[in-house]
Design a protein around this nucleic acid. Structure first.
Ligand SMILES: [Mn+2]
Ligand SMILES: [Mn+2]
Ligand SMILES: [Zn+2]
Ligand SMILES: [Zn+2]
Lengths: 142, 142
DNA sequence: TAATTAATTTGTAATCGTTACAATATAGTA
DNA sequence: TACTATATTGTAACGATTACAAATTAATTA
């Protein structure tokens, strides 16, 4: 799961993204914190290590990485975007009580779809919402 | 597809939503314009008929209707919400070129899911993105 | 290695969708 | 008709994101 600095820089080089300290740090953060963080989480955590970091740079970098498919933008919340390293396709479940976003496996090829012939599908997002096990228990004991 | 005024008011009554001219007009609009309109579209179109209408009322009403499951909020775009009459579950496809949101049929019960045992699922959103047939042709002829 | 240049970072201001709020108006009820 | 709780309205505030210009830096070249 954790990638070396060299592996990360190679990822950027392959996509012809110029190397910068900030970009490497942000890509490193996304790889080491697979909790679908928000821009604010990334910014506030990284600021400790990179005090000069600007929030604009976090936005710019995440947009750059998303354009190159190195990160995936998750817009399951209504308000702020969350970010995920792009690994194999999976679904996202957001608990409406605690707000945590969980990954789940779903077979993207088994969908029985009707009405999209002659459409070119570039992206499939599966967003579920409800209650996570912990919050179900908490609710029951109130 | 088009519902009578009486049917619409009954829908509101059943959900114990107080009847107001604005609410009926907005619910009527959503029912007659099944193109997943934005708040601005609803507001600007309805303003012709209801000149005193406030945009806040459009937001308030749509939130009320969504809370009662009379409309569904679609957050496939990154920026603004779109609204749909709640009929049977279906998927949404957004064309990345023209921006139109298309409905498609998908069997919500056929999903092969792994990792959500003991979760309570309240909502399933299926969002696809890509190019619609018209935009594929347009791109090819350029 | 030093100079050059194009791209990146930074801080601030602006934008845009949405919500908060208080005053006015209205719907439902008696 | 009178009463009261709720809805509407206009404006201000909010929060996430982007625009912009000046300062900095990465990659390239001499
Ligand atoms: Mn994920
Ligand atoms: Mn629809
Ligand atoms: Zn939870
Ligand atoms: Zn299109």
């Amino acid at each position: 799961m954790n990638m070396t600095l060299e592996e990360l820089t190679n990822k950027l080089k392959k996509k012809k993204i110029r190397l910068s300290y900030q970009r490497i740090k942000i890509l490193e953060y996304i790889n080491n914190h697979r909790i679908h963080p928000t821009v604010d989480q990334i910014y506030n955590d990284l600021r400790k290590e990179v005090p000069t970091l600007s929030k604009t740079t976090v936005y710019n970098t995440l947009n750059t990485l998303a354009d190159s498919n190195l990160v995936k933008v998750i817009t399951i919340g209504d308000n702020e975007a969350r970010y995920d390293v792009t690994i194999k396709n999976h679904g996202h479940f957001k608990c409406e009580s605690c707000g945590i976003i969980f990954d789940f496996n779903i077979d993207f090829n088994s969908f029985k779809i009707d009405g999209l012939s002659n459409f070119q599908i570039n992206q499939k997002d599966i967003y579920f919402k409800g209650l996570c096990p912990k919050c179900i228990k908490k609710d029951a004991s109130e």
